[in-house]
Design a protein around this nucleic acid. Sequence first.
DNA 1: TAGTGGTCTAGACCACGTA
DNA 2: ACGTGGTCTAGACCACTAA
Lengths: 262, 262
Amino acid sequence: MSALRRTSRPVYQQIADELRDAISGDDIGPDGRLPTEAELVERYGVTRGTVRQALAVLVNEGLVVSDRPRGYFVRRRRHMTYRPQQELLVTDGAPAMDRFHRSVAEEGRTPSQTIDVSIVVPPREIATRLRLNAGETAAVRRRVRSIDGEPFNINNSYYPLSIVQGSEIVLPHDIARGANRVLAELGHRQVGLRHHLISRMPTPSERHRLQLSPGTPVTVHYLTGYTAEGIPVRAVENVLPGDRHEVLIEDGQVPPDNESST
Amino acid sequence: MSALRRTSRPVYQQIADELRDAISGDDIGPDGRLPTEAELVERYGVTRGTVRQALAVLVNEGLVVSDRPRGYFVRRRRHMTYRPQQELLVTDGAPAMDRFHRSVAEEGRTPSQTIDVSIVVPPREIATRLRLNAGETAAVRRRVRSIDGEPFNINNSYYPLSIVQGSEIVLPHDIARGANRVLAELGHRQVGLRHHLISRMPTPSERHRLQLSPGTPVTVHYLTGYTAEGIPVRAVENVLPGDRHEVLIEDGQVPPDNESST
DNA sequence: TAGTGGTCTAGACCACGTA
DNA sequence: ACGTGGTCTAGACCACTAA
């Protein structure tokens, strides 16, 4: 049908542009299905390879997923609000898992998590934040939190071995009163936090563990907890899929939040 | 040379895996050059199409860029630290551009920015935050900040027209004492901020304006400023390329930051 | 000018889930 | 069983830039 100019922009980009417009307009809504590759081949009079190149553009932009063999579909974003300030100084109050549980349950969905604990030489990003020497080990509690059985984020919490050795932090169970509380009981109460946020594409391992579609970036949230003496006693690496999370931080005097938490 | 199994994983993924390992190991360092497509064709005994498929994987992971006709190169990340808390309540102190200028100049690089001001119906994300009715207009100051002539981030600040009409905020010049100060003089001093951070792939327009390589996500930072009465008087949309920024937030009592700002 | 990656064609076989 | 997208081959011509 609609012949495309051969002169200017590559054909596959023109096709991608038209499909993108059809999506951002409302010709194809969220969860809507795109034409099949065969249909596009016929419509534009090009090879399947060219059509696939066009679709790959949209897939890598995170606009579209291929759900074989059903076809290509427009992606929908569903954001859960993540409030890193709630990780603040909670030696009292509800621990992290309870908060996650509660906010998810409020929406009628089912939260779950896996925990695995081990002693490792942490990655550079963590070792630096805990001020460990090269080769020095730390205890790590690795969690994958899921909603309705689908993985939602990764949460790896590292603690200097010298501090948590023999405590229940190195046991692979949920800590009902919260790890921060345990640290405080061990004499290492946190009074300050530093948050680092970066955005990047996921590693193959993250893509697999979080079941990420192509074109989905992650926000990596590094959190370091300090005692009153300025000693880091906790370093967290939080991997948040971009299509499922937004980060909310409030500063100063703000009105109540009316928006939904999803 | 090294024949690849035909049984299990697709060949192009196996090639991508080997190249990725070569990169994360130190066989190919940052800025290092990958083998040419022709070399990979010969090494693996596959078609150029398959080799290109493998390379596309790495490009979309943000690990590699193609710099035609020089070849494929390993990408290097250079992070500038962005501190949204410095946007906090600055009715006194140095305004935003000064801070950007100073921190860039400290590294011996040259900052610059373009400003353009217009009256628009803001996008939904902004209209919601400013509590505008459908179709209601706002003044927007659009900035592109650059370092050494290369675009670095996009900063679009929206103000309700009823508030800033006739003030210097609607003039396309830098405001030496800061827009926050002007708002305060107009009787709308901000006492609280709400930060929203999301991570996604850039739009084609953003990719073009920021000259982003494929595989580079952006962090979008929405900032809303509230008066003591809880009225939003400023909504900012900040687009931060993931390969150039990290966000730093401090909470409570933390030791001095020893890390470099880049 | 030589060599690089970018675009496009024409075809083949396969894995998979839904109907 | 059928139609979907996933993988792979074998070729062609082109645009760009560093040597």
